[in-house]
Each structure stands twice: as C-alpha cells, then as structure tokens.
C-alpha cells in the first residue's frame, strides 16, 4: 500500500480535529464548559465581532512595534557580537544564558515601569523576541565560510563591500530563521502579558471571559490567536522561500538528499 502524502495527512488531521471539536461537545462526551463546540465558538465570535476586532487591532499594533524592536535591536546587536571577536567573547555567553531565563518573571517589573498599557507589552515582548534574533544573527555571521571572504578580498573588495556583498547575503538564511522564531516569541510575549495584566487586546479577552466562565468567548479569542500565529508563520516561511531560492535548492541537490540535481542539457561541459 502506498502511504498518503504528508500534505494529505496534515489536512486530514486538521479536518479530524475540527470534527472532534464540533462533535465531542455535541455528543456530551466533553462538557461545553470545558470545550464549547466549534459552531458555538464561531457564533460567539461573530456576536462580539466588534469587540474582538478592536482587541485584535490593539494586539496587532503591539506585536508590530515589538517585532520592529526585537528585529532591529536583535540584528544590530547580533551583527556586532558576531562580527567583533572581543565583543563575542565578552557578551555571547551572557546573552546565551539570559536566553534560558524565563523572562516572564520580569513582567511585573515591566508593568511597574511602563504601566499596564501597551508600552509594557511592547517592552516585554520586544525583549522576549530579541534573543533568538540576536543569537541567530551572531551565529549567522560567525559561521560564514572564510573562503568567501578570502575570494572577495582577492577580487579587491573593501571592508564595506565585503559586508554588503558577502557577509550580509551569506548570513541571511540564519538571520531569517531567527526572525521567524523571534517573531513567534513576540506574539507569545504580547498575548501572555495581555493575559497577565492589561485592559485591552486579545489576551485580555481570554482572561476576562475566563473569569466569568464564558467558554465560547474564551475559545473564540484563542482561535484568533491561533490564526494570528499560523498566519505569521506562513508569511515568514514564504519570505524565506522567496529569498532563499539558492539555499533551499542547494539542500535538495546535495548528494544523498531527496530530489535529483537539475537536468543538464547535453552536451554539457564537465
């Protein structure tokens, strides 16, 4: 028997999940309080659509600004730490250990400093997303094949030219991976901080409806967060694919890997 393709399996799983979501509460196997059915959730979402839409705008703007901060500061610091040996030796161990700290414990301090409005969410999520961006940028620059730099120098590249034409393009793959991870963490950071202390945003809706035991509305908010994260991930992957034609293709045509190298029109030079 032939195995179904991974895409078929993925879609099958999704459909199954949605069917279970609708079916389990309907049949009474799971109480509606724990899991309101899909249809009830959608109805609740539609009924309060303006409230959800406003909350989404708040969350999106916080996420947007936090991502800008995380990416900007992350790439800049990462480039410095990855590119300058002394800085790397001094700072990289510090940053790496900080990354392991659950920064969420610092959130109360952030609210003390920035209030419970958007600023504290942006600051918290910005820092949360900063680390993966910074660390992967540093790694991306550090692991550039020195042969590329040597070749560029032999062709007369000045230092700024080496940076613009070799170091940046060569580190883009790793940096993009960091941006995808950092972006996802930024979304988590904003939603979590909204759930903890706030008066607006989707995370706030989750915790407010939970306190009044309105499961349908809680799940409606959760559904929105899910969609938001998935959309971001799809977007980030699309950007990666577009930018990295050479890289992804290179992986595939490596010996032993699936997929063969492109056909060469005969007679091909060796």
């Amino acid at each position: 028997m032939r195995l179904p393709s991974p895409a078929t399996v993925r879609w099958g799983l999704l459909v199954l999940l949605l069917v279970l979501w609708e079916g389990l509460p309907q049949t009474g196997l799971v109480p509606e309080l724990f899991l309101p059915s899909l249809s009830k959730t959608l109805v609740a979402l539609w009924a309060q659509r303006e409230e959800y839409f406003d909350a989404l705008l708040v969350t999106l703007s916080e996420v947007g600004i936090a991502m800008l901060i995380a990416c900007g500061a992350g790439i800049l610091t990462g480039a410095l730490v990855g590119g300058i040996v002394t800085l790397r030796k001094l700072m990289l161990p510090v940053f790496s250990s900080l990354y392991a700290v659950p920064i969420v414990i610092l959130y109360p301090i952030f609210t003390a400093w920035f209030g419970i409005g958007s600023e504290s969410k942006i600051a918290f999520a910005g820092i949360y997303g900063f680390f993966p961006v910074m660390l992967s940028t540093a790694a991306g620059i550090r692991t550039i094949d020195p042969q590329y730099i040597l070749a560029a120098r032999s062709m007369g590249a000045t230092l700024p030219q080496q940076i613009a034409r070799v170091i940046i393009p060569a580190s883009i793959p790793t940096v993009l991976t960091g941006l995808r991870l950092g972006g996802a963490l930024t979304i988590i950071g904003v939603v979590v901080s909204e759930m903890l202390t706030s008066s607006a945003g989707i995370g706030y809706l989750v915790s407010r409806y939970r306190t009044i035991l309105d499961s349908a509305h809680v799940f409606a908010a959760i559904l929105m967060i899910l969609l938001l994260s998935i959309l971001f991930d799809l977007l980030a992957r699309a950007v990666e694919r577009r930018t990295l034609v050479w890289q992804t293709a290179g992986r595939q045509s490596r010996p032993g890997a699936a997929g063969s190298s492109p056909a060469v029109p005969a007679p091909a030079p060796v």
Partner: peptide, 19 residues
C-alpha cells in the same frame, strides 16, 4: 594588497557565492 587588475586567483574550492 590584492590587485585584481594585475592578478586573478582561482582557489581549490570554487568559492563561488551560492546566492
């Protein structure tokens, strides 16, 4: 210093830029 107008270099690994 490197002067590509006088000297061209070819290395063992082709060291082409993959991008």
């Amino acid at each position: 210093a490197p002067d590509p107008s006088r000297v061209g270099v070819v290395f063992q690994e082709a060291s082409l830029f993959p991008w």
